[in-house]
Nucleic acid binder design. Structure first.
Length: 555
RNA sequence: GGGCCGGUGGCUCAGCCCGGUAGAGCGACAGGCUCUUAACUUGUUGGCCGCGGGUUCGAAUCCCGCCCGGCCCGCCA
């Protein structure tokens, strides 16, 4: 620490604290790692970890360091269960590494590759680009085999660590039983060369193909397959071996030379797998291990996500309804110790908030000193693409939800034209810059997806083929008289929007119905609702001819 | 059993580490954009800061205890 005035040095953001911690490692290349086993569709929770890593990397690079990120696909993990969406028969595959399980869709090399790729394909959109490491491949490297050897040679030490960490809060009886069970325990299992199983039994009753002995002199390993009964004794390099979970992690840290790895709360619990891994790093691999960055989970609609229970909100789904920057923003503004709860129905509000924040960064919206300072630090980290030197005006998302629903009626060109007009009006522009235009279509697409999937009834505009009977039955004679006048007005080509609006008021007065009533009648005929978007522009949006025909059809 | 996070206006949350005026967004209500409006815009409303105790001149904020909600501790970010 160079500063001697700590009382002035309050961190303005967690990212500062974390990078400071990481920098203490003085690595030549800072490697920030993340990982996930591809047990099915991978939900957006993992993106919290991946983006945390990305943000740390960006900060390190910004401050002149060499830093990289990595995403480790744990496809060497054995199948424990399948989510309901998978049609494969669990009994056929349980206990076999994901990398050896068939891809039921036939597009990827394996089950593991399939679900990992599904996630990896969204990386670019979210602005992350970690190097991808496949554990199944990593275990084939001589470096990893050496790590396995080191672990087997340190079996005694590892047993001690396991007893110390795992049995820590057992009672005496449990502890004794555990110690007893550890007597002939080795920290590695074997993929049976005959049947391909790494372990036998399903969830709750798993028996791994543990190594039963290891001779450091001859490098001979013996094992017995719990699934098919095959047993053998061969040299280590002739077998596919996998270290047990709590040892597998530190071995990878060692082989890949990981400086820092974020971890969800389940792993980061005091005395949990992360801490065990760090202890293994120290006592077996003789180094401190990575900087631990614990973080809370991401929830969806107030529930935990769970691949196995099918509560899955994937990064791809996110991208279909919201910009990736918003997710990064959400993540950055939330303290690591706090859960992020995605509430899809609130996405339009969140987008508004994010875009206000964006305008603060560009100085086109007022804000106090703290907020501006925060924007300077955080906004660039939110971006998944390049930082634009100038503010690019964004079409208000809520406007997009309305207009995107009218696009079918309006036609593509007219819809875009409408959006450009809205942008011009909102930001007082002469011309809409090319960069802003480019954002319109994706925004419309997302808005439409959002409104269809998550919008409330209020948000949805439905224009029925025909005017419903319910609506027709409420029309009075003066209403019809009024409507006839409106049709006439609509055929007047020389009326601009304002004049049309005025003329409609006049028409209502002319036949003696109340203004309110006049509008209710028109909205009912158009969208079966008693209110809607400001009428004259809305009529222009729908097309005067179309509206005139629609009204005329019921008179 | 061990541990973590949260409990602040109707809703979602900020503020708590650094004790001294309780904030934002949404909602609701009222107004503006012609007396209709879901965009945009102005304003108003609304909180004994979970409960009890302690420290202090002063506590949402620090300490202790409790209650409620969620979660982790075999695999799972």
């Amino acid at each position: 620490m160079t500063s001697e005035a700590p009382e002035e040095e309050f961190s303005i953001h967690w990212i500062r604290d974390v990078t400071e911690e990481v920098l203490k490692r003085n690595a030549a290349v800072f490697l920030i790692s993340t990982g996930k086993s591809p047990s099915g569709s991978i939900h957006i929770g993992i993106m919290r970890e991946i983006i945390i890593a990305d943000v740390i990397k960006r900060e390190l690079v910004r401050t002149g360091n060499d830093a990289r990120t990595m995403f480790v696909v744990d496809d060497y993990d054995p199948v424990r269960s399948f989510p309901a969406s998978v049609s494969l028969n669990l009994e056929d595959w349980v206990g076999i590494p994901y990398s050896d399980v068939v891809d039921e869709f036939g597009c990827c090399g394996s089950f593991g590759a399939h679900y990992a790729n599904e996630l990896i394909e969204t990386f670019d959109a979210f602005g992350v680009n970690p190097e991808i490491i496949w554990t199944s491949k990593l275990y084939e490297t001589p470096e990893m085999q050496d790590a396995v050897r080191i672990c087997l040679k340190h079996t005694e030490v590892i047993r001690d660590i396991m007893i110390e960490y795992v049995a820590n809060d057992f009672n005496e009886e449990q502890k004794e039983r555990y110690i007893e069970s550890m007597k002939n325990w080795y920290p590695a299992s074997v993929v049976c060369p005959k049947c391909g199983h790494l372990q036998a039994g399903a969830k709750g009753a798993i028996t791994p193909n543990r190594i039963t002995s290891y001779n450091p002199e001859s490098d001979m390993v013996s094992f017995e397959c719990q699934a098919c009964g095959h047993s053998d004794e061969v040299t280590l390099d002739r077998l596919r071996i996998k270290l047990v979970w709590r040892v597998d992690w530190p071995a990878k840290w060692h082989v890949l030379n990981v400086t820092c790895e974020p971890a969800g709360k389940d792993h980061s619990v005091k005395g949990g797998s992360y801490d065990t891994g760090l202890e293994v790093s120290r006592r077996v691999f003789d180094w401190p291990g990575p900087v631990k960055v614990p973080y809370e989970w991401v929830r969806i609609g107030g529930r935990d996500m769970s691949t196995s229970e099918g509560i899955v909100f994937t990064p791809r789904v996110w991208l279909s309804i919201a910009p990736p920057e918003l997710y990064r923003y959400l993540l950055l503004k939330t303290d690591l110790t706090r859960a992020i709860n995605i509430q899809p129905e609130r996405i339009p509000d969140m987008i508004d908030e994010y875009e206000r924040f964006e305008r603060v960064y560009y100085g086109v919206e007022d804000a106090n000193e703290t907020r501006r300072e925060l924007a300077q630090l955080v906004y660039p980290l939110c971006l998944s693409g390049d930082l634009s030197p100038e503010y690019i005006p964004k079409l208000p998302f809520k406007f997009a939800t309305v207009i995107s629903q009218l696009a079918d009626i309006l036609g593509h060109e007219a819809t875009l034209e409408k959006c450009e007009q809205a942008l011009k009006k909102q930001y007082g522009l002469e011309e809409v810059p090319q960069e802003a235009k480019a954002l319109i279509e994706p925004r419309l697409e997302r808005a439409l997806y959002w409104v269809r999937g998550y919008g409330s009834e209020r948000d949805r505009i439905e224009i029925t083929e025909e005017v419903s009977q319910d609506v027709l039955s409420t029309l009075t004679d003066p209403d019809r008289e009024f409507l006839a006048k409106v049709v006439e007005l609509l055929h007047h080509k020389d009326l601009d929007e304002d004049s049309l609006q005025s003329a409609i008021f006049e028409a209502a007065r002319g036949v003696g119905i109340k203004d309110r009533r006049a509008f209710v009648v028109i909205y009912r005929i158009l969208i079966s609702r008693k209110s809607g978007p400001r009428l004259a522009p809305f009529i222009s949006t729908l097309g005067r001819g179309w509206v005139a025909d629609r009204i005329a059809s019921i008179l």
